[in-house]
Amino acid sequence: MEFRLSEEQEMMQRLAGEIAEDYGLEYWREKDETEEFPREMWDDLTEAGFMGLTVPTEFGGEGLGMEEVVAVALALGRRGGGVSGPNLLTLGPVFGGISIQEHGTESQQERLLPEIADGAMVCLGLTEPGAGLDTAGIETTAEKEGDEYVINGTKIWTTGAHVSDYIVTLARTSPMGDGKRHEGISLFVVPSDSDGISTSKIDKLSMRALGSCEVVYDDVRVPEDALLGEEGRGFYHLLGTLNTERIIWAAIPLSAGELALDLAVDYAGEREAFERPIGKNQGVQFPLAESKMELETAKLMVYKAASLYDAGEDCSMEANAAKFMAARAGFDAADRAVQTLGGMGFANEYHVERLYRDVRLARVAPVSDELVKAFVGTNVLGLPRSY
């Protein structure tokens, strides 16, 4: 069992960290305040090859896996990007590279994968106002008319839809049957500038630099070759993508928690009260030591899940557990950072309040703590289904 990154992985992590340092804490504070997409960083990451991490080499990518995605994500977050920086990878290697590589036709791969490696953004149109995390309950429809599909419905919390080139859209192609809620759902790669698509950003608490949107599909017509995978099997196609989403959404709060801990440790070492550094007090030091141990423990599960996925093995439990544990560890680290800084923890200039707001999202999305526990209880422990 290997607990070290390979030389190539270490090199990629260093390069990602160097890029991230060019877009440090002040950059992200400004993007948070203006709610502006970090296009400059996206372009630099694309030029360095990171948006083609999972794209096969024959299509212009790096041909690597989730272990490399995790390594890069951890560097992007800890070196200043917090939550938003590493989340850029979902719009390239994960939702784009992996989804199309695994389920796309040869024609789709030849057409779309080189675009993704060159920086085309792909977001995921999954969640709906009435369905939430109940994916089988979606109401968006895609009706076949001749050699086209006509899509109607509304998606919500589609991160990056306002800047993406494509939306991988989940829609129902046949009515829900008795006892077969997960069947009759299909995946489509929809150009975001298609006629009938309207996008509006949602005012929100966290991750403001990466806007999340409501997307309305009003008689959106796409050709037959927009279908990704087999018609009616979209839910099952999506499961692999959701595992990779959970893995990166474990790395994201983990890296943000590491950044918050770094800021707290620096402050505790410099700030003096009662004629001594506050970090000398066990009441300050011990919570930070706990966070260090919790973050390192969560990191092991993140890499385990990524390793299993790259080996082609089932990683459903590990991906969910990694996301659950990393989200808690990251949030606790940010919470302890705010406590360490005291009043200054609420000041924008010290950055931990932004990390606190941002990392809280990981307890809810892309899958809630409660649904992870329900999954493990039912599918791993074999207990009766609770939902």
Rank of each mutant, 00 (worst) to 15 (best):
E7N: 09
T340S: 03
L341R: 12
E290T: 05
M66K: 11
A260N: 02
V189L: 07
T57E: 05
E313V: 02
K144P: 01
A48G: 07
T90I: 07
Y149G: 02
S198W: 13
T140A: 14
I138Q: 01
T241P: 15
Y350V: 12
N87G: 09
L295D: 04
A322I: 04
R181M: 15
V220E: 03
S192T: 13
A289M: 07
R79D: 14
H351L: 13
S198V: 08
A311D: 12
G382L: 09
E270G: 06
T140G: 09
E30I: 07
L89P: 00
E224W: 11
V372Y: 04
F286R: 14
V215Q: 14
R111L: 15
V222H: 00
P366E: 01
V265L: 12
V94S: 04
E47D: 08
L113A: 07
L187Y: 12
E102A: 11
R221L: 01
A131I: 08
L308D: 04
M317G: 14
F331N: 03
K180H: 11
S200D: 14
F331I: 11
V367M: 01
L5H: 10
H351P: 05
D262S: 08
E183R: 07
G179C: 13
T57S: 02
M41A: 01
G97H: 03
K31A: 13
E128T: 05
K323D: 05
I197L: 11
D218N: 13
V380C: 13
S192N: 13
E33A: 11
Q9N: 10
Y236Q: 04
P93F: 09
G130T: 00
E58P: 00
E370Y: 01
I138W: 00
G80M: 02
R4A: 04
A171N: 08
P366Y: 02
F346T: 10
G137P: 15
E224P: 04
V70F: 02
K323V: 08
I197T: 09
T173L: 11
A337E: 06
D22L: 01
Q13I: 14
P366I: 05
G343P: 06
L5T: 07
N348D: 08
G330C: 04
G153Q: 08
D332R: 05
G80V: 03
K304W: 10
K180A: 09
G60W: 05
A256N: 07
V189W: 12
E18Q: 12
P56C: 00
I19P: 06
L205M: 05
L205V: 09
Q109L: 15
E143C: 06
H237N: 11
V367R: 01
D43H: 03
